[in-house]
C-alpha cells in the first residue's frame, strides 16, 4: 500500500515560514499603518522617507518575503480548511490550483512592485 508521493513537504515549509513571519510582523503593520496612524495617534512619515526606507535591499527582501510567504501560508492553510471545513476533498485538483496559483500570482506581482520602488 505504497503511498502516492506528493509535494506537501514543500508547501508545508512555505506554510510554516509564512505562518511564522506573518505572526511576528503583520500585527504591527496593521496596528500602525492601518489603525494608529489613521486615528492620529502617530504622524504618518512623509513619502520621501518611506521610499528611502523601502529601497534598502534588506527592506525589499523583507517586504517581498512578507508578501509572498503570507500568501503561501494562506494557500496551504485555506486548502485544508476547504477540505475539512467544507468537505470539498473531491475538488482537490481545482482547490490546489486555485490556492497555490493565487499565491504564485501574488508573489510575482509583489516581486514586480517591490523591485520597482
Amino acid at each position: 500500500m505504497a503511498n502516492k508521493k506528493n509535494n506537501d513537504p514543500f508547501w508545508w515549509t512555505l506554510f510554516g515560514a509564512g505562518g511564522t513571519i506573518s505572526a511576528f510582523f503583520i500585527p504591527i503593520h496593521v496596528a500602525l499603518i492601518g489603525i494608529a496612524i489613521p486615528l492620529g495617534w502617530f504622524a504618518m512619515p512623509d513619502y520621501e522617507g518611506l521610499v528611502e526606507l523601502a529601497r534598502h535591499p534588506l527592506s525589499r527582501i523583507y517586504l517581498f518575503a512578507l508578501i509572498s510567504l503570507s500568501l503561501f501560508h494562506w494557500a496551504h492553510r485555506f486548502r485544508f480548511t476547504l477540505y475539512d471545513g467544507l468537505q470539498l476533498k473531491h475538488l482537490e485538483q481545482y482547490i490546489v490550483v486555485f490556492c497555490y496559483g493565487s499565491a504564485i500570482v501574488g508573489t510575482v506581482i509583489g516581486l514586480i512592485f517591490v523591485l520597482s520602488i
Binding site: G18, S22, I26, H29, V30, I33, G34, Y47, L50, V51, A54, L63, L66, I67, S68, S70, L71, H73, W74, A75, R77, F78, F80, T81, D84, G85, G106, I109, G110, F113, V114, S116, I117
Partner: peptide
Amino acid sequence: RELTSLFVAAYAVLLIFQVRALS
C-alpha cells in the same frame, strides 16, 4: 484559527497595494 489565514492573505494584498503606491 484556520480562517485567520484569510486575513493574513488580505493583508498581504494590502501590502502589495502599499508597495505599488510607493513605487
